[in-house]
Amino acid sequence: MVPLVIQSMQYWLSEHPKMVTFRWNTQLWGSTWLFLLTSISFYITAAVTLHHLLLPLFLRRRSRPVPLGPIPALHSLAMTLISAAIFAGTLSSVAAEIRDTRWLWQRSKTPFQWLLCFPLGTRSSGRVFFWSYVFYLSRFLLPLRTFFVILRRRTLPHIQLFYDSIFICMSFLWLEFSQSFQVFTILCVSLMYSMVFGYGFWAELGFPGPTYPGIVIHCQMFLLGCNLVFHVGAILLHFFKGGCNGIGVGFVNFVLNAVTFFMFFKFYVKMHLPIRMDVTSKPKSSSETKDEFANGKDKDD
Rank of each mutant, 00 (worst) to 15 (best):
L187F: 08
I82Q: 05
H231S: 06
L50M: 09
Q27T: 14
L223Y: 03
F251P: 07
D278S: 02
A85S: 15
L36C: 01
F254R: 01
S287N: 07
V2N: 11
P56F: 10
L115N: 00
N295W: 04
A85C: 14
G225V: 08
C117P: 14
L191R: 07
F265D: 01
F162D: 05
P208D: 00
L77D: 04
L205A: 10
R23Y: 07
V216F: 04
V229E: 01
W103D: 10
H272N: 14
L37P: 02
A258F: 15
Q160D: 15
F240K: 07
F240P: 01
F130C: 05
V252P: 04
T49R: 02
Q179C: 09
V229A: 05
K241R: 15
L256P: 08
S41M: 13
S132Q: 15
P274M: 06
F167E: 15
C226P: 03
P157S: 03
S31L: 11
L13S: 14
R152V: 05
Y136I: 08
S180I: 05
F167K: 12
G242C: 14
I40W: 02
M192S: 03
W202T: 08
F181D: 00
M19E: 06
S138E: 12
M263Q: 10
L91H: 14
R23N: 14
F181Y: 13
L187A: 11
W114V: 08
L142E: 13
T146Y: 05
T185S: 09
F207G: 01
A96K: 15
F262M: 06
G89A: 03
R23A: 06
K18V: 02
A294M: 06
Q106S: 01
Q27H: 01
P274T: 08
D278V: 11
S83A: 15
